[in-house]
Design a protein around this nucleic acid. Structure first.
Length: 615
RNA sequence: GGGGCGGUAGCUCAAUUGGUUAGAGUACCGGACUGUCGAUCCGGUGGUUGCGGGUUCGAGUCCCGUCCGCCUCGCCA
């Protein structure tokens, strides 16, 4: 084989006269029969034009060249020369071409199901995934893989420079079925025993701290057997890290440094100092724990004013859970969003849609009022608000042409519905800036002071909002330890030492200071409804480790895939994963998952209960 | 588990209210062509309309079921 001396993106005018060899894929054929043939040869690095000239080459070579087709793999030898037919300004190699003297066809392709062409309309994703090796040849996909590589490298560089140690943790791991559904792996050596794939290396990294590792980093694969979304895969990658002898300030500083470094090196952007917001503030103003602060449209609590209106369903909502404390999830509230200029842009059809949209989140609906040129309310519930029009106008800062959206319901439902609605309205109003990669703002935010616990909607039991190893905030620890497990109001008020990093309304990282006191850890388990026996059965290794000299520690994990998505400007997580899975967890290329043989199952002591459906 | 959208030539799409032999571009094959650069021109092959039922004189089109993909609610400590 004619082994390459250069890549297809390398040669320039300065190389003119050199004899070179190139290897690559035929990207396009432009032929004039056996007289003259042009080929653009492609590899990961670029395109170079090859010329086959019938006056210099033997007939059989010209014959072969004339039959080259897209995606054939070839090797050529030839001389670099200035293009005699004019340069191609679209290509970095556009001033030169290779006058081919020898041609070797390394692999003649079958007719490909599609071409790796970024200019053409993409075939449907099913086909791209089935023939992923062709899709990945596309320059765009090559760029994405390169970006992902660079991001991993910058990450390792930064944490290396800051004294972090990269340590691998097990993939075959103990099942601790509290959070996400786990993937299970049967043991052959221990009949009836099962491993689980880790949802995250959480406990291992804490134990590494107890082991004196001090600073740990890992780019690790995590597995959660839950239904995927556009930005979620069952198998994904985290930038996982942990630090000893820190309070949350130190972790947050280290993270801000990392983010700054990433954006500098990946996008050439210096990001401003990251702001902070409490969880309560985020929920009150934005209705979500990961607020998109690139636009306003903030949510206002108008419960007091609503109580003086004539709107029946406002009053009904407010009557619910009225005896409960403020911010309690079951207490009725009325909240509103002022949409400046909405009267014109948000048509009746659109606002009717909002009503449906609010319902889909469990709310009774969404009331809509428009402010006319005289400052009067129109449509829907307008006449029932007449008595409080002045107060509402003042409280919300209403001006003519505004639309106001109201939701009345229990706190949790109302907040959720308006939080989601706010984002939908922002898109409809066109106030969401373009993705940051194209010049829009990068709004980073630390969200802090999350509640430690919340009630599970179905079981009514306490569950950890972050995870059961999250410590209470320093000033809350004493209250927490002393609180009775039945003291609902106190338990609900305990704030954790957790922190999320939010970018343009997207959670890109989450972490916390961990519990390093076995007594506090036991208390959390107790509150979560684990008996001491159950806690020991599941987490004895952790409780034991915590009792043998555990340093205060904390950490965080970033979703690596989502970070990459931001830099390459895609909203499809499958684009940034070389071999992703479909919504049913299938790998369309390898056809996984597939059946196991009876022999395989016997060996791991498993019998399947599944039977094929009757046809 | 629920809701929505989609599946027609290798690919991207079209096909009127249910009505003739399901079309176009592209890819592929053959031919012409000595400076193209998304080459051009001429000709040709290519179809179980995802699959299975049903309604009808007649189904790509309507109905039922099912499979696959995407979006989404639930879920994701």
């Amino acid at each position: 084989m004619l082994v390459r001396t250069h890549t297809c993106g390398q040669l320039r005018e300065s190389d003119v006269g050199a004899t070179v060899r190139l290897n690559g894929w035929v990207n396009s054929y432009r032929g004039h029969g056996t007289g003259l043939v042009f080929i653009d040869l492609r590899d990961r690095y670029g395109l170079t034009q090859l010329v086959f000239d019938g006056e210099d080459l033997p007939g059989d070579v010209m014959e072969t060249a004339d039959h080259l087709r897209n995606e054939d793999v070839v090797a050529v030898e030839g001389t670099v020369r200035v293009r005699t037919g004019g340069e191609n300004p679209k290509l970095p190699t556009g001033k030169i071409e290779i006058e081919v003297s020898r041609l070797e066809v390394l692999n003649k392709t079958a007719n490909p199901p599609f071409l790796p062409d970024d200019l053409a309309k993409l075939p449907n994703e099913e086909l791209r995934l089935t023939h992923r090796y062709i899709d990945l040849r596309r320059p765009k996909m090559q760029k994405i893989m390169q970006a992902r590589h660079r991001l991993a490298k910058v990450t390792r560089d930064y944490f290396h420079e800051n004294g972090f140690l990269e340590v691998d943790t097990p993939i075959l791991y103990k099942s601790t079925p509290e959070g996400a559904r786990e993937f299970l792996v049967p043991s052959r050596n221990v009949p009836g025993g099962w491993y689980a794939l880790p949802q995250s290396p959480q406990l291992f990294k804490q134990i590494l701290m107890i082991a004196g590792c001090d600073r740990y980093i890992q780019l690790c694969r995590c597995f959660r057997d839950e239904d995927p979304r556009a930005d979620r895969q069952a198998e994904f990658t985290q930038v996982d890290l942990e630090m000893s002898f820190v309070r949350r300030e130190q972790v947050m500083e280290m993270m801000e440094g990392y983010i700054r470094r990433l954006w500098r090196e990946m996008a050439g952007i210096d990001i401003p100092a990251m702001s902070r917001m409490t969880y309560r503030d985020a929920m009150e103003r934005f209705g979500i724990d990961r607020p998109d602060t690139r636009y306003g449209l903030e949510i206002a609590d108008i419960s007091e004013i609503a109580s003086r209106s004539e709107v029946a369903f406002f009053k009904d909502a407010l009557a619910r859970g009225a005896e409960r404390p403020r911010f309690n999830s079951k207490r009725g509230v009325v909240k509103a969003i002022r949409v400046p200029g909405g009267a014109e842009k948000l048509t009746r059809k659109i606002t009717d849609g909002y009503n449906e949209f609010a319902r889909s989140f469990g709310a009774g609906g969404c009331a809509v009022v428009k402010v006319n040129a005289q400052g009067q309310f129109e449509t829907g519930v307008a006449k029932f608000l007449e008595g409080v029009r002045g107060d509402l106008t003042a409280a919300l800062g209403l001006t003519p042409g505004d639309t106001v959206l109201f939701v009345a319901d229990e706190y949790a439902v109302c907040t959720k519905a308006l939080g989601e609605l706010r984002q939908k309205v922002a898109r409809d109003m066109g106030v969401v800036p373009p993705p940051g990669a194209e010049g829009g703002p990068w709004n980073f935010l630390f969200v802090v002071d999350f509640p430690m616990f919340e009630r599970n909607k179905e079981t009514g039991r306490w569950v950890a909002m972050h995870h059961p190893f999250t410590a209470p905030r320093d000033d809350q620890a004493q209250t927490f330890v002393e609180a009775s497990v039945d003291d609902e109001v106190t338990i609900e008020s305990i704030v954790s030492a957790g922190y999320d990093i939010v970018l343009n309304g997207q959670e890109i990282a989450g972490g916390s200071i961990r519990i390093h006191d076995p007594k506090v850890q036991s208390k959390v388990f107790q509150l979560l409804g684990l008996t001491p026996q159950q806690a020991r059965e599941k987490f004895s290794f952790l409780l034991e480790a915590l009792s043998f000299g555990a340093p205060p520690h904390g950490g965080i994990a970033f979703g690596l895939d989502r970070l990459v998505m931001n830099f390459v400007g895609t909203d499809n997580i499958r684009d940034v994963i070389a071999f992703p899975k479909t919504q049913t967890g299938a790998d369309l290329m390898t056809r996984a998952p597939s059946a196991a043989t009876d022999e395989q199952l016997r060996e791991v002591h498993v019998r399947s209960t599944w039977t094929p459906p009757a046809t």
